[in-house]
């Protein structure tokens, strides 16, 4: 058979999926391991048959209902990444929450959810010096600027008064960005960087 490690792993999935089908057939509810295997197995076979990628992703969410799995299972299957062999080659089938939203609590289930015991909104960079700057994008393409860049060092084609922005960064969530379209002028709020840093 000349099996590769990848093919052997596929057989492991097939075996676990068959176990899941046997359990479903006698009315038993599934745990996360065999439930994940069943979804993975179905995805692999729809891919084999050449269904469109988007259709395979859509169908992955219809393999199991929440009442066919044990409590806590939907949260455990929050995200499945499945590399499947289509007639057109191997493609990543990215599946989110295939057994319902983990937040949808079943009676008696202990889903792993986060509940907030604090204000609904969290203020970012609270209590720090802030200022506004007006910026025009002179480039012929979009420029994106992220949360922790020293604003005086951004793309030279983002036209603004750089004597005022050294030691200041965008006042936005860490790891997010703001985009400037070609020719666009907009005002953004900046927040002071570390106190030890030289600041305009």
């Amino acid at each position: 058979m000349h099996l590769t490690p990848h093919e052997q792993a596929r057989l492991l999935v097939a075996t676990a999926a068959d176990l899941a089908r046997r359990r479903l057939a006698r009315g038993a509810r599934l745990g996360a391991t065999e439930a994940g295997a069943l979804i993975t197995d179905e995805v692999q076979e729809w891919a084999w048959d050449g269904l469109p990628l988007s259709e395979v992703v859509r169908r992955a969410g219809s393999v199991l209902r929440a009442d066919q799995v044990l409590p806590g299972v939907p949260a455990k299957l929050h995200h499945l990444q499945i590399d499947a062999l289509f007639p057109s080659g191997t493609l990543l089938v990215d599946v989110i929450d295939p057994v319902g939203q983990p937040g949808e609590k079943l009676a008696g289930s202990g889903e792993s959810t986060v509940t907030a015991d604090r204000p609904e909104m969290i203020e970012l960079n609270a209590g720090r010096p802030k200022r506004e700057v007006t910026v025009t994008n002179r480039a012929d393409r979009t420029v994106r600027v992220t949360s922790h860049v020293d604003f005086a060092s951004v793309n030279p084609l983002l036209d603004h008064d750089r004597t005022t922005t050294s030691g200041w960064r965008p006042d936005i969530p860490a790891g997010s960005s703001i985009s400037f379209q070609p020719g666009e002028t907009r005002t953004v709020t900046l927040v002071a960087m570390a106190a030890t840093r030289k600041r305009a």
């Binding site: 986060v114 907030a116 604090r118 609904e120 909104m121 969290i122 203020e123 006042d171 969530p173 790891g175």
Partner: peptide, 22 residues
């Protein structure tokens, strides 16, 4: 003032002070 809702915050950065985690 930059703000973010609590649910989005914990989804991106993980739960924070006052959150109750199952």
């Amino acid at each position: 003032m930059a703000t973010i809702d609590a649910h989005t915050y914990s989804s991106i950065y993980g739960p924070t002070t006052g959150d109750v985690l199952g």
